[in-house]
């Protein structure tokens, strides 16, 4: 009796562990998916964007900053701007703002520059420490003066995947106003290279790496991000990743 029970329950446990992909898929994609995703708001409330990311020293900077994500933009707009040494590049700040901006790199570098040595944490699990220099996103948004209706900053990027979907990201204004949220211009004491997001990328050390969009050309202030891209607030968010990426 005991042995039969043991064998039966062992088989049951194995069956559960190895349960068919069909069952696992139907649980993952079915109505239960909404239950699973419901904790994202809870995580956002509990963890939020409080506190400051740890600051490292020069000795901690990794010799090579790992490159991940899309290949660099291949379209002629981007490559043309790069060929001219970014002299014609302008970062546009638009949408729900009182003073729309079109900022050259020189105009950006004229703002107060912050240097931060912080750890980049990828959603895949790896980490790398780099030395970033750039302008605080809060300072750039202040120039544009978001209206009272603005709730999100949406970042448009030059890069696209093989299917043609453009990268984009979004932050709420609290995340955008965090003093360590930068529009980075330099990495490890040199102007950003193409692979790391030249000429301007987002750098938000309090969230996972996919929020730190590369190759940014436009920031739109909006009341909602539902109208951008696939409607979930970012390129990876449209593929099922959390919009709140603090955990």
């Amino acid at each position: 009796m005991k042995r039969r029970l043991f064998v039966a329950s062992s088989l049951g446990a194995l069956g559960l562990a190895g349960c068919s992909s069909r069952l696992k898929d139907s649980l993952t994609n079915g109505p239960f998916h909404n239950v699973l995703t419901s904790v994202e708001g809870l995580n956002h409330k509990v963890i939020g964007t409080r506190g400051m990311a740890r600051l490292y020293t020069e000795a901690d900077v990794a010799r090579e900053f790992r490159v991940n994500g899309n290949d660099p933009p291949a379209d002629s707009t981007y490559t043309g701007l790069a060929k001219d040494g970014w002299s014609r590049y302008k970062l546009v700040v638009t949408g729900l703002v009182d003073h729309p901006q079109a900022l050259t790199l020189a105009a950006l570098r004229a703002l107060p520059l912050q240097t931060q040595i912080t750890r980049h944490d990828c959603v895949e699990g790896w980490s790398v420490v780099g030395k970033w220099r750039g302008v605080r996103l809060a300072d750039v948004l202040a120039l544009a003066a978001p209206t009272a209706a603005a709730r999100y900053a949406i970042f448009s990027c030059y890069d696209a995947d093989d299917g043609g979907a453009h990268y984009y990201e979004s932050l709420d204004l609290a995340q955008a106003a965090h003093p360590q949220t930068l529009l980075a211009l330099d990495l490890n004491d040199a102007a950003l290279d193409t692979a790391h997001g030249a000429p301007v990328r987002l750098r938000i050390p309090t969230q996972l790496g996919y929020k730190s969009a590369k190759w940014v050309y436009r920031i739109e202030l909006a009341a909602t991000f539902a109208g951008a891209g696939g409607g979930k607030g970012g390129y990876w968010e449209d593929q099922g990743y959390e919009w709140y990426a603090g955990i």
Partner: peptide
Amino acid sequence: LSPGVDALAGPLTA
């Protein structure tokens, strides 16, 4: 191992 928690409670990660 979450960046948001590390910012909120750095000594924990350390």
